[in-house]
Design a protein around this nucleic acid. Structure first.
Lengths: 207, 207
DNA sequence: GTTGAAACTGAACGAGCGTTCGAGAACCCC
DNA sequence: GGGGTTCTCGAACGCTCGTTCAGTTTCAAC
């Protein structure tokens, strides 16, 4: 039921689907479009996936799980709150920049899931938000009171990071390292008034 | 062809449509849904509007025009770059918070327009982006070199501000003034390292 | 009370949608 | 090479979609 060959073909399907969803939107995309894009017949798609919504769920679930795993790896053993935040941001933006289509689908089609699918993805989002809020709390503890409401700060940071699918081109003249460094400075400078030197930022792709 | 009565009924239709679009998404919403929500028959909707896409365009165009007009009014006569930026942010968030449904449609359904409709809205966005970039340039001139790439900074700010439809509740315990002040501090602190005191921020609803 | 434009509507059209089904093709182990 | 599982697909089903159209109602002006 779950052979390696099957897994690989499902992966191909998910990648193609993410690309089309990202370009035209989930509801605008038909199963016939996905069949064409993945080289499988329309009915064949249903051998790998139970429904269109499950396809969307799998894209969101797998990529969010990867972001979460990357975050845990990047934070492991790091105790300095500033560096923890820098690694959190770096992991997020790095994954985003290397999986633009999938992450656009995750950010933009959040409201398209329903029922149990929605529930599971929402749970992951809560875990992720909680992780950031905890880092912010540590940060306040070591660097004095914040200049800004913690919740506003957290969602502002998510806004900065998740909005990039609207403008960022990974192949353009702004590299991922610069982007990550800039977002980190922007946030830290405003949140705890920290003038961030290069030294404090993590080595690129540290996790 | 354009009586006051007709104008008012169109306004009602647009308001109802924005509410439904914001809740369920543009493509997910049928013209039958809109007819039901606005109390007009399905065919009657087409007396006021040529197509579903024109309906979306009118919502986006009218509200973006209002944001632009508010911005010009808020900036008129203000020369201090810090205050200009503060007023820019305040105008944006104030309008967003008081027109959540319309602004969610503007932010989230940007990719649903095509052809000439898309072109016109895109032009307005360019004008708006240009206005922010100009303020940032002034800011660098008066407050020294920026800590962050200007383009990254501009889109990060838009990200912070436009993401709020994903989490912000205008009726919750975070008021618009606090939100606006917080975003302003967050951005200015990181962009030019300015510890923003309350005094420098504009009076609420100054424009 | 008649007229004509404006406002509105029930019913239908053709097209495309997500999904299903039965049957055939390909593959592997004996 | 026979048998069973895995994989693939053309064709169709029922449904909903955006839009149209011929017609009716509303109503102010004469």
């Amino acid at each position: 039921m779950a052979s390696p060959a099957r897994d690989q073909k499902l992966e191909t399907l998910l990648t193609a689907a993410a690309r089309v969803f990202a370009k035209h939107g989930y509801h605008q995309t038909s199963m016939r479009d996905l069949a064409r894009a993945s080289g499988i017949s329309l009915a064949g798609v249903y051998y790998y996936v139970q429904s269109k919504e499950e396809l969307l769920y799998l894209i969101q679930q797998r990529n969010f799980a990867a972001v979460l795993a990357g975050m845990h790896a990047a934070l492991a053993g790091v105790t300095n709150p500033v560096e923890r935040l820098a690694r959190f941001i770096d992991n997020h933006l790095d994954y985003f920049a290397t999986h633009m289509a999938e992450m656009k689908v995750l950010s933009h089609e959040a409201g398209a899931l329903t029922g149990e699918y929605l529930h599971r993805v929402t749970d992951m989002k809560h875990e992720y938000t909680r992780a950031l809020m905890d880092i912010l709390a540590e940060l306040e503890h070591t660097h004095g009171p914040a200049h800004v409401n913690r919740r506003v700060a957290a969602y502002s940071l998510f806004g900065m990071m998740n909005w990039i699918y609207n403008w960022y081109d990974p192949l353009g003249d702004v590299g991922v390292e610069l982007l990550s460094q800039n977002v980190c400075r922007l946030f830290l400078g405003g949140y705890v008034g920290l003038p961030v030197s290069d030294a404090v930022l993590p080595q690129p792709a540290a996790g």
